[in-house]
Design a protein around this nucleic acid. Structure first.
Lengths: 196, 196
DNA sequence: CCGTTTGTCATACAGTCGCATGATAAACGG
DNA sequence: CCGTTTATCATGCGACTGTATGACAAACGG
């Protein structure tokens, strides 16, 4: 068995096991043993790819970032107008189906964990500016296309839009909103930014 | 020593110790021993007031709700116009100083924990509608007073405002915004809701 | 003054934790 | 074919976990 193993695949496999444990039993019950069992491998094998628990969590966190990035890129390739793209991108961040709910669930756990672990906080901060500048860029494009009002501050609107999305995620995961209400709220907000 | 003890005070004392542990070392390192040490009492004494760990966390969570409620009530007593009150109330929820940062830090940890514990999720859901309806009421009052545009949907605006606040909290706790930027964002958003 | 309640404490329990170690086997390079 | 590298494994270690239990002291009611 040894020698010919795809390290990248193994790491991804471990990261996904961490995700499942976080989702099913919460961040507090993430342990090397639990993750190893979930991944279907021995504890020693996990340790071979990840020397410490913090490293394991960091690996899982980075993979979440990649996952989100991939989803965003996929959406970006399929939309027509800047405003459609903006709307689709925000929707992509919201827990509107099982996969997005799963992703947000894990993201929220890491958000809380990040406040206490500087490593994780740093990893978390990596993706944020990219997302914000992407939002801002799309808002400016929509303004140029006459879809959004020209007087809007694109940077601030991007921040507000992102904050809105995160807040909705929190409330929805606790069970306060239904997917339908969430989409309606986003459309209501976007409508007010329109020209006219 | 026994017999003449203020049970309520003891429970509050324990809850505050839990808060400090969550804030300083994260939710994962909350244990009966750790909390007892933080509270300056023996483990047995803690167990006398709280029979299980879940109960202890629930107690700490309820106390957070009370704390926030008290802060909101205090603010509500000191403002003049509906719009001022609305603004002040939202600001009260944001991590603009050490105490509010402390409070939000703990709240975020519970938010993540709640997704896995139904008890905590239920407790979390308790305060939310109160806050949302308070926001909506204040928005309607501001509309009646001519401070906010009459065509706004008060309910949706309340939801958006709260989501915005929660999202800003997340980003700020990870270290992305400064208090000044946060306040500027809120004012920018409120300005667009104004009459005219 | 004495029995009962109320509060506190130390300790025991079985289980889990992160991490380290040494053995073992498979595939490689020579 | 053989030594080295790569990968996996089982196991051990001390520390810590949540919970249960029994002893014990202080204050009460009668």
């Amino acid at each position: 068995m040894p020698k010919i193993v795809d390290h990248e695949a193994r790491r991804r496999h471990i990261a996904e096991a961490v995700h499942r444990v976080i989702h099913d039993k919460g961040m507090e019950s993430v342990s090397l043993r639990e993750v190893a069992a979930e991944a279907g491998m021995s504890m020693g094998a996990v340790q071979y790819y990840v020397t410490t628990k913090d490293q394991m969590l960091l690996l899982a966190l980075e993979r979440i970032g990649i996952w989100i990035g991939d989803r965003m890129a996929a959406v970006a390739a399929h939309q027509s107008t800047p405003l459609d793209l903006l709307r689709a991108t925000v929707l992509e961040l919201l827990p509107l189906d099982e996969e997005r709910s799963y992703l947000n669930h894990i993201g929220l756990a890491f958000q809380a964990s990040s406040v206490v672990s500087e490593n994780q906080a740093a990893a978390m901060r990596l993706g944020l500016p990219l997302l914000l500048s992407f939002f801002a860029e799309q808002i400016r494009a929509a303004q140029a296309a006459g879809q959004l009002a020209a007087h809007l501050d694109a940077g601030k609107e991007a921040s507000i839009l992102y904050a809105f999305a995160q807040g909705i995620v929190n409330a929805t995961l606790v069970g306060h909103y239904t997917p339908k209400e969430v989409a309606a709220l986003l459309d209501y907000h976007l409508a007010r930014l329109r020209t006219g």
